[in-house]
Design a protein around this nucleic acid. Structure first.
Length: 220
DNA sequence: ATCCCGAGGG
DNA sequence: CCCTCTGGAT
């Protein structure tokens, strides 16, 4: 552990972002989509599911329901079968139909950009709203906190909280606003490629000399 | 706090 | 078998 850098300090955060950016210069959202509404659907499906699996299911789903009207009017059972591989398939199919219906009823079939409006959609809470706002509108009034961001923020000493809302508050306090969108992409990519939940590859990690965890709990 | 729920890895 | 995967609603 490099003693010159205190986790949570501005210098630490700057070094963290610089290293991750150098390691993952192409970090971005890995969900496949063509339209804002398709991204919303993909994000709803991504709950507790890998992006890879979502991307295997969405082509047939989007082909079957090419419009917001089609999504809203889908036969429940048929849609459930199409989204089944992503898990929680009955809930997710219902969220998609209800969200699509609300987009039609309240927003002219378009995706609203306001956080409050997005949060009224079925199956959409802060994590999903942050993803959609960042991807579609380039806006960030928060940091996307998913399972990867939460795990890495804890390991890197950026928070001691476990509640995603509190983790987000801590990250917003120590990360410059202009990096809010990027930091989530970087942490997710790092979590998926090296800083695994179970057996992180610390020996080859570009952060291993500034990570509080390395040398503390070798098995994690 | 609990439920929703499938798929892959160790 | 248990844990994890870009959570959210009740």
């Amino acid at each position: 552990m490099n003693e010159e850098l205190t986790p949570g300090s501005a210098e630490y955060v700057a070094e963290l972002i610089a290293r991750l950016r150098a390691t993952y210069p192409d970090a971005h959202c890995e969900l496949d989509y063509e339209t804002p509404v398709q991204l919303l659907v993909a994000v709803i499906l991504s709950a507790q599911c890998t992006d890879a699996r979502v991307n295997l299911t969405t082509p047939a789903l989007f082909a079957r329901y090419p419009t917001v009207e089609a999504l809203a009017g889908a036969d429940p059972t048929e849609m459930e079968e199409l989204v089944r591989p992503t898990g929680f398939y009955r809930q997710k199919a219902r969220y998609i139909r209800e969200a699509a219906a609300r987009l039609l009823a309240e927003y002219g079939g378009e995706l609203p950009s306001e956080m409050d409006a997005l949060l009224t959609l079925s199956g959409v809470a802060r994590k999903s709203a942050n993803v959609v706002r960042g991807e579609v509108f380039g806006l960030a009034d928060g940091v996307t906190v998913d399972t990867h961001v939460k795990r890495l923020a804890m390991r890197l000493g950026l928070t001691t909280e476990t509640d995603p809302v509190k983790v987000e508050r801590d990250l917003m306090a120590i990360i410059p606003r202009e990096s809010w969108i990027e930091i989530a992409h970087l942490l997710v990519w790092h979590g998926r490629r090296l800083c695994f939940a179970r057996k992180p590859a610390c020996s080859v990690c570009p952060l291993n000399d500034i990570c509080p965890r390395v040398g503390v709990v070798s098995s994690q």
